[in-house]
Design a protein around this nucleic acid. Structure first.
Lengths: 213, 213
DNA sequence: ACCTGAACACCGTTCAAGT
DNA sequence: ACCTGAACACCGTTCAAGT
């Protein structure tokens, strides 16, 4: 076949196929050969558009952050900073929950993904505008990311196992089996996220008040 | 050679070698063949002691949690619950920082790792003893884990890239290059962790006071 | 029981060859 | 420029064979 007169592939097509494959079958299902087959080409063809497989996954991860709402950080948006952080955190979590299989790639740091940087930029700008010192504004963006991605990783993925025999009450006296079951797991996740988010924002409010402005 | 009269391998020897290899060269360096070579045996030998490679890595990860101090959760330890959470979080973070390469395995949930469960059990017990309702005690254990592992993943690993040209000020108006440099990265990490931990504990204290007891 | 080599079904990536 | 097949240097895991 060799080179067709109209390209068979494009970065966008590759990313879309990779994203669908990650969603449907998980990160492990993404091999260059498999992905290429999904696109109707042979494996090495991908290397005309990306330097490595990892670069493809980075773009897939970045596409997820692109769907996170940032409107609450607009200068002319009415929300105060605690409300903005709260609403943003929920949008962030929803975006990750929609694509849980890519979260491990996502969580390993902003790297040079453009959308990830856009987020850091928006949060930083809004916090400084709200009166936070720049050093604290940077930290707030980072710690929120820590909490949200940590929550996504620890919960969407496997949590406790569904096998009651794995948790011997003699060994773990306080771990009643009840809250280890899969159905409860989702409630625990939701509750822990809400409780943690509220605590972070309440705690930051305490620090903010102490700024004395 | 076939079977020696004294076993060449043991689960402990395999885990120790795997741990050292992860620390020295990263998760990607751990292949069954490579690990076996390090132990002076052939690849398939490992399968006499572990069912899968993943099971080996789970034990390596569990060994890390085993080094986390839990004494602050002892019933007769003097520390109040906010201090206990604070001290525990620092011990937790220190354990992960000592073995940053295993964190991705660690972060994907407690699974059925015994030490991870021992931790959940200790935190839960101490929080209930301090007066937290059981549902909240469960959430506190989970949200702390979210924050600490999220912080370990997002920071020890690659963060921002060290190439100044990657961050165009026209695109990211608020991202001064200064705080993107590698030297500053560590300060940002430390600061974000401290600020977030303090906020979480302060925020939980607000909720605790509202329990009215 | 515990190790071996051979084998199966894969990997990511490079590269010369084709148009 | 963009695709191909062949090739390189690997993978995790299974299994019959050996003691």
């Amino acid at each position: 076949m060799a080179r067709p007169r109209k390209p068979l592939l494009s970065r966008d097509r590759i990313v879309a196929a990779a994203s669908a494959l990650v969603d449907a079958e998980g990160l492990d299902a993404v091999s260059t050969r498999r992905l290429a087959a999904e696109l109707g080409v042979s494996g090495p063809s991908l290397y005309n558009h990306f330097r490595t497989k990892d670069e493809i996954l980075e773009v897939v991860a970045d596409a997820v952050s692109d769907r996170i709402d940032l409107s609450m950080f607009d200068p002319d948006d009415g929300r105060d900073w605690p409300t903005a952080l709260h609403d943003w955190a929920h949008s962030y979590r929803a975006a990750l929950r929609a694509h849980p299989n890519i979260v491990p790639v996502f969580a390993r740091g902003p790297g040079r993904r453009p959308a990830g940087l856009r987020i850091a930029d928006a949060v930083f700008g809004a916090m400084v505008r709200a009166g936070w010192p720049p050093a604290q504004a940077t930290r707030i963006g980072a710690l929120m990311r820590y909490f949200i991605t940590g929550s996504a990783l620890g919960s969407f993925a496997r949590g406790f196992v569904d096998d009651a025999t794995a948790y011997d009450p003699a060994v773990y006296p306080h771990l009643g089996r009840a809250h280890l079951l899969a159905e409860h797991r989702e409630q625990v996740d939701e509750g822990a996220f809400e409780t943690g988010l509220r605590a972070i924002i309440d705690g930051l409010s305490v620090q903010y008040a102490a700024l004395g402005r």
